[in-house]
């Protein structure tokens, strides 16, 4: 039972990075990104390959952040003039594109079999491997939270919020909007990359089918639930989504009318329905447009 709780918390912490990243891009700056899983995946593969080659976890995390962040920057630089709806299509498509590359390039990433035997090289004396991992990941998440919170409340966050409200105004007062938008994408992607690296290290096994669009939708729901732009809200939203997704696995022992596949399907149906309800309530009649 405790082990189970630790596992849920670890998933919550990992998704926390990805959601904080999306909150910088979408919540703060207004850049919708339906392909956050792409940066998550790249971080995961990056850490898997480098730690297997003997790199310790922390440098691997930094490297994952750098690689994912650069990719995020590239996406931002290619899409500066796209409207919201097109950005949604392109980012979603991009994430599938990235997944297909991992699926096909056996020499790089093991193809459909993925990568097994990824080291989980951290233990704190006196704690078991899982708990030490949780402690370290949670400390890192606290740092990411501190960073996000300062970013949101510093003048730079004001500029990002201004871009979300009206990009034209920000250009008219002499600020390079493309630079700021790219920066937001880089930071958000880098955080997702760190999340991915932790994901790979925790599971010690990754494969392309783990990086479908669902992950992007989970964090989207988390940011939406916590109200876009709120750092604390994002983490709270992530906790709710993680409990809904991972916590309900506990029910498996009590519910016998449905089998494992059905229970998994029910969980995701519930999440889809919850996402729709949040949107309908948040944007429905009588609310802000």
């Amino acid at each position: 039972m405790t082990a189970y709780l630790v596992a849920i918390l670890i998933f919550a912490v990992i998704y926390g990075f990805v959601a904080l990243g999306l909150n910088i891009q979408w919540g703060l700056t207004g850049l919708i990104n339906l392909g956050q899983v792409a940066f998550f995946a790249v971080g995961a593969y990056c850490a898997a390959l480098t730690t297997q080659a003997g790199l310790p976890l922390l440098p691997a995390l930094v490297l994952a952040a750098l690689v994912s962040g650069s990719l995020g920057g590239a996406v931002a630089l290619f899409t500066p003039r796209l409207r919201e709806d097109y950005l949604a299509i392109v980012t979603l498509g991009f994430s599938e594109f990235v997944r297909l590359i991992f699926l096909n390039e056996k020499w790089l990433a093991g193809g459909p079999d993925g990568i097994a035997g990824i080291p989980r090289p951290v233990t704190i004396p006196g704690l078991d491997s899982e708990t030490s991992f949780l402690v370290i990941a949670a400390v890192l998440l606290a740092v990411a939270f501190w960073f996000s919170q300062r970013l949101a409340h510093f003048p730079i966050g004001r500029t990002l919020r201004a871009i979300r409200e009206d990009e034209t105004v920000v250009a008219s007062i002499g600020k390079p909007t493309l630079t700021y938008k790219t920066l937001a994408f880089v930071l958000g992607a880098a955080l997702a990359g760190i999340g991915g690296a932790l994901f790979a290290s925790y599971l010690t096994y990754i494969s392309p089918d783990m990086f479908g669009p669902n992950v992007s939708i989970y964090v989207l729901a988390a940011v939406l639930l916590g109200r876009q732009g709120s750092t604390l809200g994002t983490l709270a939203g992530t906790a709710v989504v993680a409990v809904l997704l991972e916590g309900t696995r506990l029910l498996k022992d009590y519910i016998t009318v449905v089998d494992g596949v059905q229970l998994a399907a029910l969980r995701l149906m519930a999440l889809g329905l919850a996402l729709m309800i949040i949107v309908a309530v948040r944007y429905g009649p009588g609310r802000r447009a």
Binding site: F154, P155, I156, R158, T159, A162, V170, I173, G174, K175, L183, L187
Partner: peptide
């Protein structure tokens, strides 16, 4: 929001 060259407008800050 307006003043130019704000230090707080840079990521480093």
């Amino acid at each position: 929001l307006v003043p130019e060259g704000q230090f707080g407008d840079r990521l480093l800050s």
